[in-house]
Design a protein around this nucleic acid. Sequence first.
DNA 1: CAGATTATTATGTATGCACATAACATCATT
DNA 2: AATGATGTTATGTGCATACATAATAATCTG
Lengths: 233, 233
Amino acid sequence: MNRPSFRNWQSVQEEVRRRIHAREWKPGDLIPNESELAQEFGCARTTVNRALRSLAESGVLDRRRKAGTRVAAQPVAKATLDISVIRIEVEERGQKYGYQRIERDAAVPPLAISGAMKTSAQRPLLHIRALHLADDAPYAFEDRWINPDVVPDAMQEPFDSVSANEWLLRHAPYTHGEIAFSATSATPDEAAILGCPASSALFAIDRLTWDGAASVTKVRLLFGPGHQLRTVL
Amino acid sequence: MNRPSFRNWQSVQEEVRRRIHAREWKPGDLIPNESELAQEFGCARTTVNRALRSLAESGVLDRRRKAGTRVAAQPVAKATLDISVIRIEVEERGQKYGYQRIERDAAVPPLAISGAMKTSAQRPLLHIRALHLADDAPYAFEDRWINPDVVPDAMQEPFDSVSANEWLLRHAPYTHGEIAFSATSATPDEAAILGCPASSALFAIDRLTWDGAASVTKVRLLFGPGHQLRTVL
DNA sequence: CAGATTATTATGTATGCACATAACATCATT
DNA sequence: AATGATGTTATGTGCATACATAATAATCTG
């Protein structure tokens, strides 16, 4: 029997996936090296490398120089969440997007905020509270602090029609950030804003972005009961 | 002035990132094509391609054949969550992992389950309920249904010391899956198991995995109040 | 001029080769 | 036997070249 040839990296990847799935290569197993696979598959080593590198990125393989490539013993599923602007998120659900600014002022933030943002405890920050709507119903409550030292232009923005969520993405570049997801019980205030019973279980996204060593903005987004963040594995 | 040369793809990537961050290339802008950049950077087109491809994967650039490469207008932040085995998760927090099986039986699932898993409404599935502990305190409550047609070996497993969470990853290959995050109010039953007040806001992860067209398992993981799922941007 | 055909162009990828680098193995030295 | 130098090996990457492919632009044709 003449073995089929795998002449592009996608088909090599598929074949490797198949062998792992078929348990020909079991979790923890060392697989043949690139040169051997290239010979077997009838393609260049570069092509095999491309396929294996991609599989390593998605967590299926563990690769180490000299040590070789092995099937991930503990296959960590990598779920990639696309965090976009809320307006886009709502529109992609086929709903009408709406926005309401609730509050905008400069204020000295609670210590938890200035601490996390590494700003001076007395320094007033720009504080925005707003509601995002989907089909005229409350969708997400945004509570945001902006560092005016990093984004001075924000002080001139009213954020009454364009959300800070959207404005910042366009005007405030950042280098890195942290994001956390959690569940929280609605305070009476939050419940009133989101139009849900007090103590409802809300889905919370906390995000903190940095431009180098300085924090840009810290935001908490609260989603009403029933909200799901979904993706594929 | 002699321009610096960028002789590896990481430094090319860095330079592109810098230009975008410095607004030399603004969101939506078409950037020079690979050949031009290769010439400017004094490297091969392959190297530029590697850098730009990687940036496109992370959502910073939009690339289309012939149309060229442009800076993403709506930079979607891609948060990658590593979903691993709960035991590993706990151990990585430096805590002692514990496991308790609460229930194991074959039962006809609610319609919501058989519907989602696309199994016959009368078909009994393997039902496991278990508690994961961190430093002897409740950490996560696992409520799982397993499709015995796809994972017959599971019927022989007691799941009293090794969690289904871990056993399945080792013994039940899957091709794809869905995952959803949400917040939910603790039922009295759940509250008792997790040792928290009834109606507490719990963080829920729902996962459904498939092997081709057949569902492998559907699981709901509930985490106690205060639990956060965090990652970097 | 509408619609189909063809050319052009930028990205996508395969290949052979070379060398870099990390990690491990081996052997020599104290 | 501990320590350090050296070699070996598998992956990681760069380069030149060639061709593939998708999408657009230009051209031809009825």
